[in-house]
Amino acid sequence: MVRTQDLTYSYDARHILQFPDMHCAAGEHWLLLGQSGSGKTTLLHLLGGLLSPHGGFVEVASTRLNNLSASELDHFRGQHIGIIFQQPHFVQSLTVEENLLLAHQLAGFRPERRRAHELLAHLHIGHKSNVRPNRLSQGEQQRLAIARAIINRPKLVLADEPTSALDDHNCEEVLALLEREAGQVGATLLIVTHDGRLKDRFHHRIFLQSTQA
């Protein structure tokens, strides 16, 4: 499902990040661990097609992201990859429900009101569907971010430090939700973190060293 090979990226000439080759099968849940500065976020952006690698390639669902044009890549990402960021952000002028439907629509799907409602109810924020996202608590916002990432039934779900801002209780809940929801749509889940609390939950783990050449 996700494959990388000889992946490198550099922000400047003297600072080249090298990433270990990866191969994650469909439906697997992976943890990407590493210290700050080890290039965790960079790797996640490479996998999500937000950055283009300087060397090597990324393959998601048998599609080489390198070979796609800019707008094809946007479209591919919208349809097949869901991303959850450390700080949840939303379109502030839209309600919770509208934010979910926007994800549908921007990916080129017909907005499915019912799926949005089901998903929100499932994540216990159904009663907040008509408020603005900034009225939600941190935990609720993170749940909404998960809902947004999986609403299009993506093949790959990427999560960048989804728990670092949360207390133990919320952390546990968000992780459980991520696994459950990703499992439900059959997506490959890749969590990037330096949060030690997550280590023992996952069998598939990749440790990133700050490898600089």
């Binding site: 946007d74 919208g78 939303f90 926007l102 994800a103 947004r148």
Partner: peptide, 8 residues
């Protein structure tokens, strides 16, 4: 974010 969600 809109770009991430598929907007060109």
């Amino acid at each position: 974010l809109m770009r991430v969600m598929g907007a060109s």
